[in-house]
Design a protein around this nucleic acid. Structure first.
Length: 693
RNA sequence: GGCGGGGUAGCUCAGUUGGUUAGAGCACAGGAUUCAUAACCCUGAGGUCACGAGUUCAACUCUCGUCCCCGCUACCA
């Protein structure tokens, strides 16, 4: 059962791996729901610690470092800064965003490990692992390359074949095997590691999981699946250099398994935060009245529901997660989001290219979050939701209320007179919204909550349509005042209940209503706390409104098309990037080279060859005369832009007719891996006819 | 291969313990309206609930089988 009336909350969002930037899938699946939840809790006056950070250990970091030719530390430094900044700009309101490379985390992890070790909770096992003798280290699965047993791809990794997608183990790979470190052939070698005997824990874990029937279907299903298969001991240390050293004697070259230390990061980061705040971290991890909630994606379910709780149970002094509302995945334009294939919308790029539109993305991702199944993000949908929902319903309603007030009530909140049945019905309905929204959030049903939020704006639009104050104004001003008072109260309520989802809009709306910090009547601003949401007297009459601004702007097609094009372009480049450099041709003698007469010339004229989509007809000044050269570059260059450019050409290539025209030579080009062409010219102007050798 | 989740309107998604005419938003059609960013408001059309069997008075919902998507995870030592 879920904890009924917690004293405080510890809310964690997955520690993301610091080997790349974050994309919309991460946000939709984990960080945005967590932020909405936390913002709501704070708005209702709850004591919350919202903790997250980067996970900076493990094999992929070392691989990334190798690829980029920098150290693992440089990799994690780079991405930690970038990720942290993106989250801040996006309004994810962590109380602390830290990293697992901090000393406090290393200490906490070692201490945790030693506690388990000293109380006899680990088993030691010796297994045979692949070892690189020249690099003198054990190889992680990813570092071993061999032939895929499924598809025959000669470059399959020890954990997975990137060609056919098969999941593999290093021992499955067929010869020849090689180490990615040195290229030498790895050998099997015995090594000792420490295992957490999950098998012994099974009854207690079952009891724990079964005590939470309220967990989401996907979460519960995954847990039961594991429990049914029977838990097995799991190694908590690895033979690797990069990570937290095992705090035992004679363990050189061994570190804590990244999945052991990562969840402990939640604890160490809470400590770090508590120290900064002068609070007691233990209350947030050891008090039975604290509600612990982990927000994660579906790939992390068993670690958070089984392995981490097992670690905590063994240790003994910690509370266990009350809920783990794992989401499914978000797809993008019909395809899986993929970092390696560069098929993603990166948060830092979005913030750059669509500045000030944090709330649009927050809205779209929350409205279409993968809560019960994989969902789909498309830019077209992004545009539609912005234009017809945020602009058309939410923004439009607020704008109508404000503009009407300026028109008929001098921009001041008018007095509310006698209420009609319609008025009363609307106010009654208004009063129900905060609870409805709040309850959906508490049940981790963020999409539903967001629908209710929009329904409140719809209620406002409908109310205006029914009461038609712009007509009534001609005959009955007091009635108009009553109507607009109510419309403004609805707007004021919107500013409260939209805050968890749309914090930037909430702020804008407060300014618009001139209640940014406080009102003269309410100097502390407490009237606008969630506890007062639903009330119909948030704005006192006579209160002057702020300057009328639009909450949202329409998004035109070109903005959207630009994003779609960019996406496809990125993917195309990436596909081409994996093209390998062509193999070297057989060796030739100098004489072979000397036969080629390569010279510099200047393009005097350039025009398309009629009926040909590839050929350009060039007139080139070769120093002695002008020669005509046909070149198949029409798809890469505008003819006009070539005029006056110096190029390198092969002068003694036998003349040849193409499309009825004679070509007297060949322009030399470099081909980029995306297939685009580059002219080869001298780095400063030289005389035409100058020889290349 | 095993296990888990999913397959519902043209699109994106809801559907609580089996119970009347299966819902929402968008898109579409018609109407109304002009305060508002051609926005808003009303009405309508639109579904063999992946497919096939079964249980039941009654199945989107339960059972079995098949196909497809996603995730976790083995074995072929």
């Amino acid at each position: 059962m879920s904890l009924e009336n917690p004293q405080r909350y510890t809310v964690t969002a997955a520690l993301i791996y610091a080997n790349g930037p974050i994309h919309i899938g991460h946000i939709a699946g984990c960080y945005l729901p967590a932020d909405i939840y936390v913002r709501y809790l704070r708005a209702t006056g709850k004591d919350v610690a919202f903790i997250s950070g980067t996970d900076e250990h493990g094999v992929p970091i070392t691989i990334r470092a190798q690829k980029e030719g920098i150290t693992p530390q440089e990799v994690v430094d780079k991405y930690y800064v970038q990720i942290k900044r993106s989250f801040e700009e996006f309004g994810i309101s962590f109380d602390l965003y830290s990293r697992t490379s901090k000393p406090i985390h290393h200490e906490t992890s070692r201490e945790f490990f030693l506690n388990l070790y000293n109380s006899g909770n680990f088993t030691e096992e010796i297994t045979e692992q692949y070892y690189d003798e020249s690099a003198k280290q054990f190889l992680a699965d990813r570092y071993i390359v061999g032939v895929c047993p499924v598809c025959g791809n000669p470059n399959a990794y020890g954990d997975q074949c990137e060609n056919c997608g098969s999941t593999l183990s290093p021992t499955e790979l067929k010869e020849p095997l090689r180490s990615m470190l040195s290229g030498s052939k790895p050998v099997l070698k015995a090594t000792k590691n420490w295992y957490l005997p999950l098998d012994r824990m099974q009854p207690r874990i079952e009891e724990y999981v079964n005590s939470h029937p309220e967990w989401k279907t996907n979460v519960m299903g995954q847990c039961q699946s594991w429990l049914k298969e029977g838990l097995r001991p799991r190694a908590m240390t690895r033979d690797l250099d990069w990570g937290i050293k095992v705090p035992l004697p004679d363990t050189e070259g061994k570190v804590l398994y990244v999945w052991f230390d990562a969840p402990i990061g939640y604890i160490s980061m809470t400590k770090e935060w508590a120290e900064q705040q002068g609070r007691d971290w233990e209350l947030y991890w050891r008090d039975k009245d604290t509600k612990l909630v982990h927000f994660i994606g579906k790939d992390n379910i068993v670690f958070h529901c089984i392995i981490f709780p097992a670690m905590l149970m063994h240790e003994g002094s910690y509370i266990l997660a009350d809920n783990v509302p794992a989401n499914e995945f978000m797809n993008l334009e019909g395809d899986k989001i993929s970092t390696s294939r560069n098929w993603a919308v990166w948060l830092h790029e979005y913030l750059d290219e669509l500045p000030g539109k944090q709330d649009v993305l927050r809205y779209v991702l929350a409205a279409n979050g993968p809560e019960t199944k994989d969902s789909e993000f498309t830019w077209k949908d992004f545009q539609t939701r912005n234009n017809s929902e945020l602009v058309g319903i939410f923004g439009n309603f607020v704008n109508r209320a404000v503009v009407l007030t300026q028109k008929f009530c001098e921009g001041k909140v008018p007095t509310r007179g006698e209420l009609t049945g319609t008025d009363q019905a609307v106010l009654d309905e208004l009063a129900q919204f905060p609870d409805r929204i709040g309850q959906a959030i508490e049940q981790y049903r963020f999409r539903e909550a967001l629908t209710y939020l929009m329904d409140l704006a719809r209620l406002g639009n409908k109310y205006l349509a029914e009461t038609e104050p712009w007509k009534v104004a001609k005959t009955d001003l007091p009635r108009v005042q009553t109507i607009l008072n109510i419309a403004l109260q609805i707007s004021a309520n919107l500013s409260i209940v939209c805050e968890p989802f749309l914090p930037f809009t909430a702020e804008k709306l407060r300014k618009l209503l001139n209640t940014a910090n406080s009102t003269p009547e309410d100097p502390t601003g407490t009237a606008f706390h969630w506890i007062n949401a639903g009330k119909s007297d948030l704005l006192p009459h006579g209160h002057g409104l702020g300057e009328a601004v639009l909450l949202f702007e329409k998004l035109e097609d070109d903005v959207i098309n630009q994003q779609i094009n960019k996406l496809h372009e990125a993917k195309r480049m990436n596909e081409l990037a994996v093209k390998t450099v062509p193999e070297a041709k057989p060796a030739i003698q100098y004489d072979d080279f000397a036969k080629m007469d390569i010279r510099i010339g200047t393009i005097l004229e350039a025009e398309r060859v009629p009926k040909s989509d590839k050929l350009l007809k060039l007139k080139v000044d070769d120093g002695t005369s002008t020669r005509q050269i046909l070149s198949g570059i029409a798809k890469h260059f505008e003819p006009e832009k070539l005029i006056g450019v110096q190029v390198t050409f092969l002068a003694n290539l036998a003349p040849r007719k193409m499309m009825g025209l004679e070509s007297q030579g060949m322009i030399l080009m470099a081909e980029d891996r995306d297939g685009s062409l580059s002219l080869i010219g001298p780095d400063k102007a030289v005389w035409n006819g100058g020889a290349v050798s």
